[in-house]
Nucleic acid binder design. Structure first.
Lengths: 231, 231
DNA sequence: CGAATGCTTCGGCCGCGGCCGAAGTGTTCG
DNA sequence: CGAACACTTCGGCCGCGGCCGAAGCATTCG
């Protein structure tokens, strides 16, 4: 007799992500947007039939959700937990030894700035966390972060209202960045900052990728408001 | 041309966990202890030769580390990130729909109390977090936690010295529990609490499992110190 | 020294699962 | 309507990779 407890379900879930085509599909959906089966087939790099099979598996497992709209089938990640698990795996992958990883231009853009479900990631996000920390707007510690009094004022000026939980200091999660290997901001603050930057027209989401691009307005804004000079 | 960026490495890492035998091996190592190849073969439920192959793959990928000691080969997880990724996958597995999951007695013990790398998990850990929160020793919010002034005094009385980071409130990470689907304490505080309970002889680590058992002293201690009555 | 133990390497079997071509549903056009 | 399009289902091919038996190294005994 073996000591299997729920090892099977761990393996099942991991195996589902462990296929290249499915991993590409999930990564394409990682920013939370919904894509059609056809678009996902392109991302996956396999035929439409094969993709359909993968999508059925992912849907049945509860990884993705389907919304039918006319003759298009839109798929999106079913929960943020999926994205979290993928990021956790990316961190392991990034820490791994001499893994062959060719670096293309798209990869470079991803490393500079990308979305991670509902918040920002990459160089921009890590630098942002640094600056906010240096100016005492947030306090980073042991995998979590707190917003200070001055921070609340600053974010309010920036156009962000943060819910004040109960009687105490509000917190925002940190999220380890796979490309930078340091923390960036997630949680309510991370999501709010990302949304606000989009609303202000500072950044734009890429069409086929999670990478985001900067508008001239954004370059100016990040410099003046956060003291960040883009590379 | 497809849009593959590092999708391959995500798939590679996930596929490595995605085999039942390897998943069992990794779960057996999840509490941070080092086990021999033979013990791992038993946990994996496959022959020694097959296990050897799996261990070689996991080692090469940087998932586990090998320490040779006489004719025994001791393997342990190479980094906490691996454990984190596994927990993230377990959460996804637990949230999934009608996944067939037979529940044995060992499984029940695991759900009650187990170790998760360096801290406690399961019913005990979740209840502990609840009690500490109710008594205002810690403040939980949005995936993170802060220790209050009173909390510091309480933990010091309990025999735990927490490093005070810089000039501000220290934080301890929370970690989503796959069996309870709620937060328990990780980070410095979580690790410290677990170690202190072990030192006090309140709990003991199981021989073949991550489940922990309670001593009579522990049953008394958890009741008197934390107000927790064991089921 | 030879036998026993712990682990790894080698070789070959075999089945699961990913893949595509072809055909089948449902939707939107002109 | 019928044609074009988006997607799924079916059937069959095929190769990767997990598995074990047997043999090969190390280490520790008596």
């Amino acid at each position: 007799m073996t000591n299997i407890v729920s090892g099977n379900s761990l393996a099942e879930v991991a195996a589902l992500i462990g296929d290249p085509a499915r991993a590409n599909i999930l990564q394409a959906l990682a920013d939370g947007r919904a894509l059609t089966a056809g678009e996902l087939a392109w991302h996956a790099g396999v035929s439409a039939q094969t993709t359909s099979g993968h999508l059925a598996k992912l849907t049945e497992a509860g990884f993705i959700a389907l919304a039918k709209q006319g003759r298009h089938h839109y798929f999106r990640l079913a929960s943020p937990e999926i994205a979290t698990a993928m990021e956790a795996l990316m961190i392991v992958a990034a820490n791994g030894p001499r893994r062959y990883r060719p670096t293309g231009p798209k990869d470079q853009a991803m490393r500079t700035a990308r979305t991670c479900y509902d918040h920002l990631a990459g160089w921009l996000a890590v630098t942002l966390a640094d600056r906010l920390s240096a100016r005492q707007f947030i306090v980073l510690s042991d995998g979590a972060a707190a917003v200070t009094e001055e921070g609340h004022r600053f974010f309010r000026d920036f156009g962000l209202e943060l819910d004040e939980p109960k009687n105490t200091r509000p917190l925002c999660r940190t999220c380890l960045d796979w490309s930078e290997r340091r923390s960036h901001l997630a949680g309510q603050l991370g999501a709010g900052l990302c949304q606000r930057c989009l609303d202000l027209g500072w950044i734009k989401r890429g069409r086929d990728s999670r990478a985001v691009t900067f508008t001239p307005l954004g370059i100016e804004g990040f410099r003046d408001t956060f003291g960040i000079t883009l590379p």
